[in-house]
Write a protein that binds this DNA or RNA. Structure first.
Length: 640
RNA sequence: GCCGAAAUAGCUCAACUGGUAGAGCAACUGACUUGUAAUCAGUAGGUUGUGGGUUCAAGUCCUAUUUUCGGCACCA
């Protein structure tokens, strides 16, 4: 008999070889029904994997977060089995569960087409109906290599495992896959799924490798949950900034103007200007000094900075004039280094914080361009902080806090904080170990000391130093780098930056690169999606729409109101077109104007306004002054 | 850049296996003008992304190319 300890501390005895499923069934049949897998001494166990020793266990039910992963992982295997039945030569890469489902990378021997997904789905359903038991077995590395001798991808994976590793495989019917587990017991438990898309994906994520075909899918425990998820996918299309940007006339992308070169339309530019003013003030308050530098610079400048050797592939080609070679700047750090050098600096001057709204040009791969999210000409508020070593932590932390403030003001949600470190194996980083170790240690200490949770990402650093990236998840489900604070000991070296210390000697300052809220382009794409085009009043391109009930009778009053609003710094528009009232109201609503004001006899008589807030049905009548102060207050508070 | 899919009026979309390119909205013209999501009638709008080809005939088939979309790689 085995002693099984439950999470509440109670202990029960079971026969040796009992499974999670068996234990769940012994407790109640309803628990058995919803159990998905379990932890046995913190190791993930399948429903039907025998437990051989005394253990403490935790049953995972379909309500637990881990359950979704187990289900989708099993769905990936199910799909692979179906593909193997339909395409006999198919070989498989990796097939994990992901945030919203699963994928599997496949070399099917032939090119899969989108219409094949339906056939694969059908075959999956057939396997589900066959109720194939998913069983685990363990074997040696040699045996595993023998088992997968016809699949070079699995061979490669197996070969990289440590020599004495026990390798587990999962078998369901005729299909066996290399896998750590856990799984869901039987194919019959994967009931509600859908295959979503077909895409290319490089083997092992390396563009030098062969490209496999990746099928994305999603699996859920109930029909309703699947329907809800598919509905969310549909709703995302309504939030797509490319669609909203067109409808609300925010920006324009045009081939004749150039791929990835966005043009801001009046409404879009209005929002951008509000953001620019907001950021300027925020930075001013935080002690930043604003400068302005050109978008064009000599190639030499970028050779000094190291961008020419590390970043050239992302730069537009050079231009020659008067025996000098110029480039369009992809980054502004070199210019700010020169600005620092424009004067002799004392230790008393530091920190010096230079900020600038800069336009940069980067040659981004054509396939990566996407609306405003990824463009080739971008404008952002960039900053470089020149600090003494003893000021590093405080300045990084202040910069970080400023970022958090801006993200909160904008109503965005942080997904996670990333600490991007060097991967020594990769050649793209500068090679001064001492500086790397110091920089990485300082950032880690800082995050730890301030209880900031973060994920370490090796190999994601900038070539000149490690960085803290603030990742935001967009309403489209994309995770995007919103802000960044980067520690740089290299550029001060390359530009021979100095300050005079209290000892009268020259010292090296340290540079902190800071990106506050991404670029205006990317920020706009995120905001559009976040708010579904209905900007909070402080950001809205048009804040008020004044609509007279009758053009003849109420036009004068409507004009008077509109002028008054504009005098009070509100972005108000008057609709005096010869159209019906209902038509104008509908348009004010579809353009998502925060305040729609319809004025007629009642308002004229009492010197009032009647407003309807976007998203609400209620019509509210108030005195003009009260209305103005209410909206102004809302704007100042950046209310959402 | 790579893999897959797509491109029709300003916008959203039709046009069965090749057989005279249509609709709604927007625009323009005229009429109608009082309370919270579309007043009515008419007019105009296209070398079907672009270049080749097959065919009696191409939006539809083939081919090249450009761009867009879903991903990968890269990345703010």
């Amino acid at each position: 008999m085995l002693k099984i300890t439950f999470p509440d501390g109670s202990i029960k005895e079971f026969d040796k070889g009992i499974t999670i499923e068996g234990i769940a069934g012994a407790i109640s049949s309803s628990l058995k029904k919803i159990s998905v897998a379990g932890y046995v001494n913190d190791e993930l166990y399948d429903l039907n994997r025998p437990i051989l020793n005394d253990a403490s266990i935790k049953i995972i039910t379909n309500k637990d977060e881990e359950a979704f992963e187990v289900l989708n992982h099993s769905a990936a295997h199910l799909m692979a089995q179906a593909v193997k039945r339909l395409f006999k030569d198919a070989k498989f890469g990796v097939g994990p569960a992901i945030r919203e489902g699963f994928y599997y990378d496949i070399d099917a021997g032939v090119q899969l087409k989108e219409e094949d997904l339906k056939k694969i789905e059908k075959e999956m359903q057939r396997i589900v109906n066959q109720n194939e038991l998913i069983s685990r077995s363990e074997l040696s590395k040699e045996a595993a290599l023998e088992l997968f001798k016809h699949d070079e991808y699995k061979q490669e994976l197996i070969n990289e495992l440590p020599e004495n590793e026990i390798i587990s495989v999962y078998k369901q019917g005729e299909f066996t896959d290399l896998c750590r587990g856990g799984h869901i017991g039987s194919t019959k438990n994967v009931k509600h799924f859908k295959l979503l898309s077909l895409a290319g994906a490089y083997w092992r994520g390396d563009s030098n490798n062969k490209q496999l075909q990746r099928i994305y899918g999603t699996a859920w425990f109930t029909k309703e949950a699947l329907a809800t998820h598919l509905n969310i996918l549909e709703e995302r299309k309504e939030r797509d900034h490319r669609k909203l940007g067109k409808e609300l006339r925010i920006f324009e992308l045009n081939n004749d103007a150039g791929q990835g070169l966005a043009m801001w339309l009046p409404h879009g530019y209005t929002v951008r200007k509000v953001l620019e003013d907001y950021v300027y003030k925020l930075e001013k308050k935080a002690g930043y000094l604003h400068v302005s530098t050109p978008a064009l610079g000599t190639k030499r400048l970028y050779e000094i900075s190291g961008h020419w050797s590390h970043y050239r592939d992302n730069m537009f080609p050079v231009m020659e004039r008067d025996g000098e070679t110029f480039v369009l700047r992809p980054m502004s750090c070199p210019h700010h280094m020169i600005v620092y050098k424009s004067d002799l600096r004392s230790y008393r001057d530091l920190p010096i914080r230079y900020a600038e709204i800069v336009t940069q040009h980067r040659y981004e791969a054509s396939g990566s361009l996407s609306g405003l999210e990824r463009v080739r000409a971008m404008t952002l508020t960039d900053a470089h902080l020149f600090v003494r070593e003893d000021q590093i932590k405080k300045e990084v932390l202040d910069a970080y806090n400023l970022i958090i403030e801006a993200i909160n003001d904008l109503g965005l949600e942080i997904d996670y904080i990333e600490l991007a470190l060097r991967d020594k194996e990769k050649g793209k980083f500068h090679d001064n170990d001492e500086l790397w170790n110091l920089a990485e240690r300082l950032l880690k200490e800082l995050l730890d000391e301030n209880n900031i949770e973060y994920k370490e990402m090796t190999g994601e650093a900038a070539f000149y130093g490690p960085k803290i990236d603030i990742q935001v998840r967009t309403a489209m489900g994309h995770v995007i780098t919103m802000s960044t604070v980067q520690l740089d000991f290299l550029l001060p070296e390359r530009f021979d930056l100095t300050y005079i210390g209290s000892d009268g000697e020259k010292h090296r300052p340290v540079v902190i690169h800071r990106g506050l809220i991404s670029t205006w382009e990317r920020l706009m794409s995120i905001l559009l999606e976040q708010y579904k085009g209905a900007f909070p009043t402080w950001l809205a391109p048009v804040q008020l729409k004044v609509i007279p009930v009758s053009l003849d009778v109420h036009q004068t009053y409507a004009k008077k109101l509109n002028d008054l609003f504009i005098d009070n710094d509100l972005r108000s528009e008057l609709d005096l077109r010869e159209e019906k009232l209902g038509y104008k109201i509908r348009e004010a609503q579809t353009k998502k104007v925060p305040y729609q004001l319809v004025v007629g006899d009642n308002e004229v008589e009492n010197n009032q306004v009647t407003y309807r807030k976007y998203g609400e049905q209620a019509q509210v009548t108030v005195d003009i002054e009260d209305f103005i102060s209410m909206v102004r207050k809302e704007i100042i508070n950046k209310s959402r």
